[in-house]
Amino acid sequence: MNGGTVDSSSSRRSNSINFSKGAIDDVAYSIGLSLLVLVVLVIISYISYKCNRLSSHSSTTNFSFYRTHDDSITAQQLGGLDKATLVNYPKLLYSQAKPHKGDDPAASACSICLSDYKETDMLRLLPECGHIFHLKCIDPWLMLHPTCPICRSSPLPTPLAEVVPTSMHQN
């Protein structure tokens, strides 16, 4: 009976030793594996970091290249004014504009919709030529073409670089 217990206990111990030895092997194996994974991860991340720096560098240059390219294309294709420029143009009510204009027929009716102006109509005054239109009629046109529909002049002011020398000359 005793021998049986000893035997069984020793066998159990050896079992447990065997088991713990196997567990240690497992732990060592898993530590080794995780170290390996870690090293591989570090290497991968290092490589990807290097690559990213390279590719991000090249992609930013590409991006900026394409952006300027795109900008120039849209500017060429549309040629219109952007909203920011348009907002700076003088706008006024017809009741305010009337005193400034004589009997010019273009000043009493909008050349785009052909309607007579009403007192409460909001108008846009083109700064270069002084022609007026309904705000709602001229703005869509100017966003497509930077020209006055009546005199075809560009409402864009003369570039500052060209203005400064003349004004200095006059002084």
């Binding site: 785009i112 052909l114 020209t147 529909p149 075809r152």
Partner: peptide
Amino acid sequence: NAWSPAWT
């Protein structure tokens, strides 16, 4: 390209 909305 020389169109203007003032034309009828």
